[in-house]
Amino acid sequence: QGDIVVALYPYDGIHPDDLSFKKGEKMKVLEEHGEWWKAKSLLTKKEGFIPSNYVAKLN
């Protein structure tokens, strides 16, 4: 089961498979690959890669 993270900063995706998000948006982490994680937005239901240093895990 994936962790839920919250965006600390907004992110505008650079690549087509990036997931753009707004500050405060919550996402479910699907896979962790070093600095880039695959996640699904709980708001938009879209999936893509996010920079892990832009988010914090919720406990």
Rank of each mutant, 00 (worst) to 15 (best):
Q1N: 12
Q1R: 12
Q1E: 12
Q1T: 12
Q1F: 12
G2R: 09
D3R: 13
I4N: 03
V6Y: 11
V6T: 06
A7N: 00
L8T: 04
L8S: 03
Y9C: 14
Y9W: 12
P10W: 08
P10N: 15
P10L: 06
P10G: 12
D12G: 08
G13N: 04
G13I: 03
G13F: 02
G13W: 03
I14G: 09
I14W: 08
I14M: 11
H15R: 13
H15P: 10
P16M: 08
P16W: 08
P16E: 11
P16I: 09
D17H: 12
L19A: 02
S20Y: 04
S20R: 06
F21T: 00
K22L: 09
K22P: 04
K23S: 08
K23Q: 09
G24F: 06
G24M: 03
E25Y: 01
K26H: 14
K26G: 04
K26P: 07
M27R: 00
M27C: 03
M27W: 01
K28G: 04
V29C: 04
V29H: 01
V29K: 04
L30Y: 07
L30V: 07
E32G: 11
H33A: 09
G34K: 05
G34Q: 05
E35G: 09
E35R: 11
E35T: 13
W36I: 13
W36P: 04
W36H: 07
W36V: 11
W37C: 09
W37L: 15
K38C: 12
K38L: 15
K38W: 15
K38Y: 15
A39L: 06
A39S: 03
K40V: 14
K40Q: 14
S41V: 03
S41C: 05
L43G: 06
L43S: 11
T44W: 02
K45D: 14
K45G: 15
K46W: 05
K46I: 07
E47V: 14
E47W: 06
E47M: 09
E47L: 07
G48N: 01
G48M: 00
G48S: 00
G48L: 00
F49K: 09
F49G: 04
I50V: 08
I50G: 00
P51D: 03
P51K: 05
P51I: 03
S52N: 07
S52T: 07
N53M: 10
N53V: 09
Y54Q: 05
Y54R: 07
Y54W: 06
V55Y: 03
V55E: 01
V55Q: 00
V55L: 04
V55F: 13
A56V: 15
A56S: 10
K57A: 09
K57D: 06
K57W: 12
K57C: 08
L58E: 08
L58T: 08
N59K: 11
N59E: 12
N59D: 13
